[in-house]
């Protein structure tokens, strides 16, 4: 791969891995949701994300040019080669944690996809355009639930506040663009990162206000992992051990 391709490959892994790990976490709720209607809605979100995973990782494999398929990338990389942000690998916790994790991610995901739909790379633009519809719904839903439960009962408010305080440090990574993001923005391939951050903050701060939730203290995320650079916490290894176990136990088998 050229230096340019290298950066694009990295970036595509980030997009695909975010979707894969978040889909995986969300799918853990299937059969255990707080209401049947919610069980079904959550599964829809996870299904959308799995679909997006396959598109991003397939394209990543194409760009890499080493013959790796989406499944190869999903099931054969070790944790240190994953590029998802640390937020999405956090455990589900109670439903409030799951919801807040989804909300904080959706608020970054949608503006990112909106901008990617105008990427100078037509393959990226095509995937992003399709994903935008799905993620528009994700963000609408997660925002609505955060507001309802934040401004709900005393208990739902307390649980959301706890979850928000606990997960807020992971939003630092979403709001701290790195060289790859700036470089690809200059090439017109990826969004201007600062614009995405501004949109994230605009949406999230307003939603928290309507949810009567207190915005947690900033700047506590320095040591919470730099997943997009491959520096994850302990959770990802355990997650991948489970996710990849069957596939790795039967190398070469078709399913």
């Amino acid at each position: 791969m050229t230096g340019d391709d290298d950066a694009v490959f990295e970036y595509l892994l980030r997009l695909g891995d975010n979707c894969l790990i978040l889909a995986h976490r969300t799918s853990e709720w299937c059969g255990h949701g707080p209401a049947l209607e919610e069980d079904i809605a959550l599964a829809n979100t996870a299904l959308d994300l799995i679909g997006q995973t396959r598109l991003w990782l397939s394209l990543a494999g194409e760009v890499e040019g080493a013959g790796r398929s989406a499944d190869d990338l999903a099931y054969r990389r070790d944790a240190m080669d994953f590029r998802n942000v640390s937020l999405v690998e956090q455990p589900n916790g109670d439903f409030a944690h799951t919801l807040v994790r989804q909300f904080l991610f959706d608020a970054w995901h949608l503006p990112t996809l909106h901008a990617l739909a105008r990427s100078s790379d037509p393959r990226i633009a095509a995937i992003a355009e399709k994903a935008t519809k799905e993620v528009t719904y994700h963000l609408e839903r997660s925002t609505d639930l955060v507001i309802r439960l934040g401004d709900g009962s005393a208990e739902s408010h307390a649980r959301l506040q706890t979850a928000l305080t606990s997960l807020w440090p992971f939003s630092d990574e979403l709001r701290d663009p790195d060289d790859i993001e700036y470089r690809l923005a200059r090439d017109g391939i990826a969004p201007a990162p600062d614009a995405v951050v501004a949109q994230w903050e605009g949406h999230v701060f307003e939603a928290l206000r309507r949810a009567t939730l207190e915005r947690p203290e900033e700047g506590r995320g320095r040591f919470k992992g730099r997943g997009k650079q491959g520096r994850h916490g302990e959770h990802l290894g355990l997650l991948l051990a489970e996710m990849q176990s069957l596939s790795r136990a039967h190398p070469g088998a078709s399913w």
């Binding site: 889909a23 799995i50 396959r54 989406a70 499944d71 596939s247």
Partner: peptide, 19 residues
């Protein structure tokens, strides 16, 4: 078994079924 489905496609299919 959703979390251990051996391919992305099987993961989606099983999740849709259980849903």
């Amino acid at each position: 078994w959703i979390t251990r489905a051996p391919t992305l496609e099987r993961k989606a299919i099983l999740l849709a079924k259980v849903q």
